[in-house]
Simulated scan of single mutants.
Amino acid sequence: MPAPLVLTPLQGIPLIRPGDDLGDILWRALLKNEIALQAGDILVIAQKIVSKSEGRLVNLREVAPSPQAVELARLTDKDERFVELVLRESRKVLRYRPGTLIVEHRLGFVCANAGIDHSNVEGPYGNPEEWVLLLPENPDASARRIRNGLKERSGVSIGVLIIDSHGRAWRLGTVGVCIGVAGVPALVDLRGHPDLFGYQLRVTQVAAADELAAAASLVMGQADERTPVVHVRGFPYPLRESSFSELRRPEEQDLFR
Rank of each mutant, 00 (worst) to 15 (best):
A3W: 08
V6L: 07
L10R: 00
Q11M: 00
G12T: 03
D21R: 06
I25F: 01
W27E: 01
R28P: 00
L31D: 05
E34F: 04
L37C: 05
A39P: 00
G40M: 05
G40Y: 00
L43F: 01
L43Y: 00
A46F: 07
R56F: 01
V58F: 06
N59W: 02
R61C: 00
E62M: 04
P65N: 12
R74K: 13
L75C: 12
L75E: 14
D77V: 12
R81L: 07
R88N: 08
R88S: 09
S90F: 04
K92E: 13
K92V: 11
V93H: 09
Y96C: 07
Y96V: 03
L101T: 05
H105P: 06
F109H: 14
N113Q: 09
E130M: 10
V132D: 06
R144Q: 13
R145L: 11
E152R: 11
E152K: 10
D164R: 04
D164L: 02
S165L: 13
S165I: 08
H166S: 10
R168I: 07
G173W: 05
V177D: 01
C178N: 09
G180V: 06
A182C: 11
V184C: 07
P185Y: 04
A186K: 06
R191E: 11
P194Q: 10
L196C: 07
L196A: 15
Q200P: 07
V203C: 10
A208T: 10
D210R: 05
D210N: 13
L212V: 13
A213V: 11
A213P: 04
A214V: 12
A214E: 15
A216W: 03
M220W: 09
G221N: 10
T227V: 11
G234H: 06
L239W: 07
R240S: 10
S245P: 03
R248N: 13
R248A: 11
R249K: 14
R257F: 13
